[in-house]
């Protein structure tokens, strides 16, 4: 969905979100919105800007919930960004979001467009709860590229993707694996209100993935390591 169509549905009472290129931010009622559009590549400057907005919200509006609306094709592929350590910038955004969480800000992610690899890792995946629109696209890599890199025939990957959620693109796979909590459909303002009312608790994604049958080992293996009496 286009951001221009999404915002009026999420905030029927209006908002003060300002756009600047592929970045936007601003308040909508008592929710603070931070986002990207047009399949933005997450580079050092963009992640630094998003982190700055998180810190500003913490300073100026203690406790205000943060809604991340991220449409990204992934991390920026750039020699210059890598030279100044792009991963440190993305890690900084993660630290700022966690800082906000620690100060009592609810953090909700909504994938309304694309969410790819490190672009997803650095945003909605760090939320207390991540949701998606039905038409959202979530992935690490498309199957033809995956076939080229892994040297596994495309037909085999396509065939397996019918029964396995573990590697193929698709929001339904990320729901099955517990990373996306649910789909928002119909009254999106009501979906947001419900999500804000829910108590996030700790990281529940492994438990959800196990219950939904998409990720059957992660919870058990991590618990085994945590409790191993050796």
């Amino acid at each position: 969905m286009k951001i221009d169509d999404l915002l009026p549905q999420l905030f029927p009472n209006g908002h003060d979100i300002a756009f600047d290129g592929d970045y936007f931010a601003g308040p909508a009622g008592d929710v603070a919105v931070i986002g990207t559009r047009d399949r933005a590549a997450i580079g050092a400057a963009l992640s630094h800007r998003m982190a700055g907005e998180v810190l500003r919200i913490c300073r100026d509006h203690p406790g205000r919930p943060i809604l991340l609306l991220v449409d990204t094709l992934g991390q920026k592929m750039s020699r210059r960004d890598e030279t100044i350590c792009l991963n440190a910038y993305i890690a900084h955004l993660a630290k700022c979001l966690d800082h906000a969480r620690g100060r009592g800000h609810r953090i909700i992610g909504l994938v309304y467009g694309e969410a790819v690899s490190a672009g997803f890792l650095s945003s909605s995946m760090l939320a207390d709860a991540c949701y998606a629109l039905p038409e959202a696209e979530v992935k690490v890599m498309n199957l033809p590229a995956m076939s080229r890199v892994t040297k596994i025939p495309l037909e085999r990957l396509e065939e397996l993707s019918q029964s396995s959620a573990v590697f193929a693109p698709g929001v339904e796979n990320y729901i099955a694996m517990g990373a996306v909590r649910g789909i928002w459909e119909g009254d999106l303002a009501a979906c947001l209100e419900r999500a804000l009312a829910e108590d996030p608790g700790p990281d529940t994604r492994r438990t959800l993935g196990e219950q939904r049958g998409g990720r059957t080992l992660a919870r058990r293996v991590s618990a085994d390591v945590r409790g191993d009496a050796a």
């Binding site: 992935k139 890599m141 995956m146 193929a168 990720r215």
Partner: peptide, 9 residues
């Protein structure tokens, strides 16, 4: 990549 979604999560 062989288990890309599980790895990313």
């Amino acid at each position: 990549l062989h288990e890309a979604n599980a790895g990313l999560i």
